[in-house]
C-alpha cells in the first residue's frame, strides 16, 4: 500500500498468531489423513513420513456398494430441505413475534423459548413413537418436516432480534402506502433481515451436516446414510478403527462447509446497502 504502518503490521501478526491456534487441529487432521494408519498414533511428527492417498481411496469406497459420494448427495439433499424449512417457518414466526401484535403473544414467545430448555434425551423416545405412528421411520421426513414447522426456536429468536432492530418508521411508512402485512413481510422485512436469514442458512447447513443423533435414529438404510453417519462407520470402540480413513473423509466433509461459509459471508458482512431493499 502507501506507507509502512507498524500498528497495522502488529495487528496482522496478532491475528495470524491466534489464527494458527485456531487452525492447528485442522492442519494436524489434514496431515494425519495422508499418513499410513499405523503411523498416526505411533509417531508424534506433524508431517507424514511419506504421503499416501490410500486413506482417501479406502474411505471413499465405503461399503456395500455405496461410496461416500452417495452420502454427500444425501447430506446435500437433507441440508437443502432443512434450510428451506427453517428460512420459511422461522421467518414467518419471527415476523409475527417482532412486528405484529396478537393475543397471548408473550405467552407464546415464552413457550417458544421454553421448548429450547429441555434436554433432548428425554424427549427422544416419545418423539420416536410419534414418528413411528406417522410411519416415518427410515425416511427423511422426521428430519425435514419439523423444520417446516418452526421447531428451531433458536432461529426464530435470532430473527426476532434482527427484525426488532429495523426502524419502526420504515414499516409505518409502508403501512401508510397501503402495504398489507403479507407484502410487508415479503418486500420489506425479509430483505432487511437478510443478515439474519444468511446466518440461519449457514448455521442450518453446518448443524444439519454435523448432527448425527437424529439421523442415526431415523435413518437405517445405508443408501440413505448421510456424511455424518458415514463418518461414524470408521469407528468402533470394541475393535479396530480406521483412523486414516476417518481423517480423510472428515477432511473432505469439511470442504462444503468451508466453501459455504466463504461464499455466504460476503452477503452476511460485506454490505447490504439501502439500495437492495427495493427488490
Amino acid at each position: 500500500m502507501t506507507t509502512f504502518k507498524p500498528r497495522r503490521l502488529l495487528l496482522h501478526v496478532i491475528i495470524i498468531c491466534i489464527g494458527l491456534i485456531m487452525l492447528y487441529p485442522l492442519l494436524w487432521m489434514i496431515m494425519s489423513s495422508f499418513k499410513e494408519s499405523t503411523e498416526i498414533f505411533q509417531s508424534n511428527s506433524f508431517w507424514p513420513k511419506k504421503f499416501t492417498l490410500s486413506n482417501y481411496i479406502e474411505g471413499w469406497t465405503g461399503l456395500s456398494g455405496f461410496t461416500f459420494g452417495r452420502f454427500f448427495l444425501n447430506s446435500f439433499f437433507l441440508v437443502a430441505m432443512c434450510i428451506i424449512g427453517n428460512l420459511l417457518s422461522c421467518s414467518m414466526a419471527a415476523y409475527a413475534f417482532a412486528k405484529l401484535s396478537f393475543a397471548f403473544k408473550s405467552v407464546f414467545f415464552a413457550l417458544m423459548l421454553g421448548t429450547l430448555m429441555l434436554p433432548f434425551h428425554v424427549t427422544v423416545v416419545p418423539q420416536y413413537i410419534v414418528f413411528k405412528h406417522l410411519g416415518w421411520i427410515n425416511t427423511y421426513l422426521p428430519l425435514i418436516v419439523p423444520k417446516f414447522l418452526g421447531v428451531e426456536g433458536f432461529f426464530i429468536f435470532l430473527m426476532v432480534q434482527f427484525m426488532r432492530t429495523i426502524p419502526k418508521d420504515l414499516s409505518e411508512a409502508a403501512e401508510i402506502d397501503g402495504c398489507g402485512p403479507i407484502r410487508m413481510y415479503w418486500k420489506l422485512i425479509l430483505p432487511l433481515a437478510l443478515p439474519a436469514l444468511i446466518t440461519t442458512m449457514i448455521f442450518t447447513f453446518i448443524w444439519t451436516w454435523n448432527d448425527f443423533f437424529s439421523q442415526l435414529l431415523y435413518l437405517s438404510d445405508v443408501k440413505m446414510y448421510t456424511v455424518a453417519l458415514g463418518l461414524r462407520m470408521f469407528l468402533d470402540a470394541m475393535g479396530q478403527s480406521s483412523w486414516g480413513a476417518l481423517f480423510a473423509m472428515s477432511t473432505l466433509s469439511l470442504i462444503p462447509l468451508f466453501v459455504i461459509f466463504i461464499f455466504f459471508q460476503r452477503y452476511l458482512i460485506e454490505g447490504i446497502t439501502a439500495g437492495s431493499i427495493k427488490g
Binding site: 414467518m92 409475527a96 405484529l100 421448548t115 418423539q127 402485512p181
Partner: peptide, 21 residues
C-alpha cells in the same frame, strides 16, 4: 394476521414439541 404467520410454528409446537415434552 398474527396467527396466520405463527401458524406453521403453532402446528409444530402442538404436533412435534408439546407431545414429547
Amino acid at each position: 394476521v398474527g396467527f396466520f404467520f405463527l401458524g406453521p410454528w403453532l402446528i409444530g409446537l402442538i404436533g412435534f414439541t408439546t407431545i414429547p415434552m
